[in-house]
Amino acid sequence: MTTPTIINTIVPESERMNIVDGLFGMSYMLKLEPVVFSIAEALAESYKGAYWEFHDLSNGGWYMAPRHDTEFTVSCENGFDGKLSPDAFGITACLYAFSELSFAGDRMARTCATQYHLLREYVAGHPEARSIYRAID
């Protein structure tokens, strides 16, 4: 049995807040976004901010990734050092954030735990899956 392909759609500007409000409510602005940006800064010295695109996944998952022209050199506390495309960098930062925020025991924590697993499911078919897994494990 084969796993169906997960479709990745970039969320149009006009729908961005509807998507995050439906998934995370006010916790997106108060918790998730600041944690993702902080993790991005910690992972890549060259990251100095960017416009982030939102990605809606057909399995119910969601992530954000910086719109950037070049790869990021990433260094993780787990020993991973390597280059990631902006998309893989965003996925990695979101996986770290979802994991970190999943331990609070509230609705946001449950949502982040679910999003972590849905995003990992998508990563399995990503061209940079191996590097993403190495960066997060």
Rank of each mutant, 00 (worst) to 15 (best):
P86F: 08
N78M: 14
G61S: 05
L84A: 02
V74E: 08
W62T: 04
W62P: 05
D69K: 14
E71W: 01
C76D: 09
N78A: 05
S85F: 12
V74Y: 11
L84D: 03
E71A: 09
G79E: 14
S58Q: 11
T70Y: 13
Y63C: 14
G82D: 03
S85W: 01
S85T: 15
T73I: 13
D56N: 08
S58L: 11
M64I: 08
S85K: 03
D69R: 07
S75K: 12
G60L: 00
G79V: 07
E77S: 11
P86M: 03
G79K: 13
S75C: 09
G82Q: 06
G60H: 07
F80A: 02
E71H: 15
G79Q: 05
L84I: 06
D56T: 02
D81F: 13
S58E: 12
S85H: 00
M64G: 12
G61K: 05
L84K: 04
P86W: 15
N78Y: 06
T70W: 12
R67G: 00
A65Y: 03
G60Q: 03
G82H: 01
D69H: 09
H68Y: 15
T70A: 15
P86A: 01
D69E: 15
K83S: 12
G61A: 10
L57F: 12
S58F: 01
D56Y: 07
F80L: 05
E77I: 01
Y63R: 03
S85Q: 04
H55C: 10
E71V: 13
A65G: 13
S85L: 07
N78H: 10
G79A: 04
C76K: 08
H68M: 12
F72T: 10
K83A: 15
W62Q: 03
V74R: 15
F80R: 02
K83M: 05
F72V: 10
A65Q: 11
H68V: 07
S85E: 00
N78K: 10
C76L: 05
N59G: 07
S58R: 09
F72G: 02
T73E: 14
C76I: 02
P66T: 03
M64D: 11
P66L: 04
T70M: 13
G61C: 13
P86D: 02
F80M: 01
P66A: 00
P66Q: 04
G82T: 04
T70V: 11
G61L: 12
T70S: 12
P66M: 04
A65V: 01
F72E: 03
W62E: 02
S85R: 02
A65L: 06
T73R: 08
